[in-house]
């Protein structure tokens, strides 16, 4: 197994763990953190591809994409945290009210 494959697969594992965290933990902060770390997992996959061609200089394009991705992730996380605070202020709860789902989709 080459180091490129190893890094890419580790990134995929991080993403998979975060998807599990996002769907199985109801607390909003945990969900937001799961999304945030999922982004980092994807960035790891991206960066692993910058050494796609062995022996050559690293490809700079993945770095540019990851930098842009980090900016987007920071904004998204900040907005999600602010929204979670508003939800907590108004509903006095850090969980989404599941009963607001139509009954046939609860779960």
């Amino acid at each position: 197994m080459t180091s490129v494959t190893l890094y890419a697969l580790s990134g995929m594992v991080v993403v998979a763990v975060c998807v599990y965290g996002l769907v199985s933990y109801p607390h909003l902060i945990r969900k937001i953190l799961a999304i945030n770390v999922m982004g980092s997992g994807i960035f790891l996959v991206f960066l692993s591809f910058s050494r796609r061609v062995p022996g050559e200089n690293p490809d700079p394009v993945p770095h540019a994409m990851v930098l842009t991705g980090i900016v987007v992730a920071v904004c998204a996380t900040a907005f999600a945290l602010a929204l979670a605070r508003r939800v907590h202020e108004v509903t006095r709860s850090s969980y989404l009210p599941e009963e607001q789902d139509p009954p046939e989709e609860a779960g």
Binding site: M12, L22, I35, M38, G39, A80, V90, L96, Q100
Partner: peptide, 25 residues
Amino acid sequence: GERDALTAGMRYLLVSLLGSLAYLL
């Protein structure tokens, strides 16, 4: 900033971010 809209928006944001991240991967 109404209650229903805030909780629906929070859920929508999580869904939307998950969808975009799947696309990014």
